[in-house]
């Protein structure tokens, strides 16, 4: 069986760092000579690269790390007019309140259940769709379908929820009109707590699946064509090829996406849920993100809301670390 050489030499020479001396292309020899003399320190030597990353570092410092200082209000009774320095210091009071309120378990349950449903139903969708798209042989058809399934990603939740509202409403919504015309009872999609989760997950799938395929389609293009040829010679059909070649080949991509999704378990996002929530489905719809908003911004309990948000962030961090460790244990690369 013919084997391919591990990697093309052109891609290996992109970065002038490691590698045995005999593999160094002639152009880099001078560079290496200089380094051997020890005249330049690496920071100065790669100043161009460091300079390029500087705006990025500045961005994260100013917009991500600096605002974290504001988290002190989670340990205070923060009042805007007294400021960070003047507000009363209350230690862990807000956390005690959070953990001792019934609301906490409600929030935790709702957040986890919806996240679990998302992982179970929404997460595999882009993989399935990417595999299906990969099998489409007509190039024009494939590109057209791809473009169409990307579209929902660019619609705001406001639009999507409004469209669903118009269709699902009991007071003259088209879906319910159909159900009634077919002799059924109207269904309270918008207000029945039992319908909230399916509706939420369905809307997420509708919006994100197409966009999610990009990562997997990119991963699939890197699969070596020769593997398919070889498999075909051995008599493997399309399904077998997908199962034994495509899927294992994109496994690292799947694992990374899974780790990232697990990190986001507590982070369902505020906008979508806020738009589909009303007082009739609140018991299953209230999640940490919406609660922070209601408590903090609407009811003005800034410190308490910060405590809730901080707790949520910490749980997310722990989850990412756990998932990453787990991935490494199973021999995958992980995200860091």
């Amino acid at each position: 069986m013919p084997m391919l050489t591990p990697s093309a030499p052109s891609s290996a020479s992109a970065v002038p760092a490691a590698g045995p001396a005999d593999a160094v292309p002639p152009g880099l020899a001078k560079d290496l000579d200089q380094r051997r003399k020890g005249s330049a320190n690496p920071l100065w030597k790669h100043r161009a690269l460091y300079l390029m990353i500087l705006p990025g570092i500045a961005y994260f410092l100013v917009f991500k790390y600096l605002p974290m200082g504001g988290l002190v209000i989670a340990f205070q009774n923060y009042l805007p007019f007294l400021g960070f320095t003047g507000s009363e210091w209350v230690g862990l009071d807000h956390f005690v309140r959070l953990f001792s309120e019934d609301t906490f378990f409600l929030l935790l349950r709702n957040t986890l259940v919806i996240s679990a449903l998302m992982l179970l139903f929404a997460f595999p969708m882009p993989i399935v769709l990417a595999l299906l798209l990969n099998e489409v042989r007509t190039k024009v058809l494939k590109k057209t379908v791809q473009t169409i399934v990307y579209l929902p990603h660019f619609m705001s939740w406001v639009i999507i929820v409004s469209i669903f509202y118009v269709m699902l409403s009991i007071d003259g919504g088209s879906i319910n009109n159909l159900i009634v015309a077919a002799g059924g009872e109207p269904v309270r999609f918008l207000t029945d707590p039992d319908w909230l989760r399916p509706m939420y997950v369905f809307q997420e799938i509708w919006r994100a699946t197409g966009w999610g395929t990009i990562v997997y389609l990119a991963a699939i293009t890197s699969v070596d064509e020769q593997l398919y040829e070889a498999a075909e010679l051995d008599g493997a059909g399309r399904l077998r090829q997908t199962w034994h070649i495509t899927l294992p080949a994109i496994r690292p991509a799947i694992i990374i996406m899974l780790i990232l999704s697990i990190g986001d378990i507590m982070e369902l996002g505020f906008e979508h849920m806020f738009l589909v929530m009303n007082s009739l489905n609140r018991e299953v719809a209230e999640i940490f993100d919406t609660y922070v908003y209601t408590a903090g911004i609407q009811n003005g309990q800034l410190s308490y809301a910060s405590a809730v948000g901080l707790f949520k962030g910490l749980v997310g961090l722990v989850l990412v670390m756990l998932a990453n460790r787990l991935a490494k244990k199973f021999g995958e690369e992980g995200v860091y």
Binding site: S11, A14, V15, M52, I53, P55, Y59, F63
Partner: peptide
């Protein structure tokens, strides 16, 4: 391995893009 090599360039490009947007 390929990812780690492309990493710095991608990160820097993204960072610049982000900073520009922020400004």
């Amino acid at each position: 391995m390929r990812m780690t090599k492309a990493g710095p360039v991608v990160a820097a490009t993204a960072a610049i893009a982000l900073t520009l947007t922020a400004c």
